[in-house]
């Protein structure tokens, strides 16, 4: 089975709405004012979105993610190296989970 008309329709539909959202954000930004509340809001979006992405994955109820997040933070603040911080986080979460399981 290569594919089906239903699958092609679903995939194209998903692709179209995804692209529409991405283009709308870009084009709507044009109509937003450059200063004042809306501009301050736009400036605060990146940090807030990242914090919202990270927080639920860190506060899982397991100590492994909390310890790994601390390790990631410390390594990043010391090294300013994203990859080192990522590797430290992954290694820490792996080891702590082994310790908990063991």
């Amino acid at each position: 089975m290569l594919t089906s008309p239903e699958a092609v329709a679903a995939i194209l539909g998903m692709a179209i709405v995804t692209m529409a959202v991405k283009m709308s954000g870009f084009l709507l930004a044009d109509r937003l004012p450059r200063d004042g509340f809306a501009a301050a809001w736009l400036r605060h979006i990146p940090g807030a979105v990242l914090a919202a992405l990270v927080a639920p994955a860190v506060v899982t109820g397991s100590i492994a993610e909390a310890v790994a997040a601390a390790a990631t933070g410390v390594v990043f603040l010391l090294s300013k190296n994203l990859f080192a911080a990522m590797a430290a986080g992954v290694a820490t979460v792996y080891v702590v989970r082994l310790l908990i399981a063991g």
Binding site: V54, A57, V58, A68, T72, G73, L82
Partner: peptide, 13 residues
């Protein structure tokens, strides 16, 4: 945890 660690480091930056 790779995503989480990466995004956390980006946030701190």
């Amino acid at each position: 945890f790779a995503f989480t660690a990466t995004f956390l480091a980006l946030l701190l930056g």
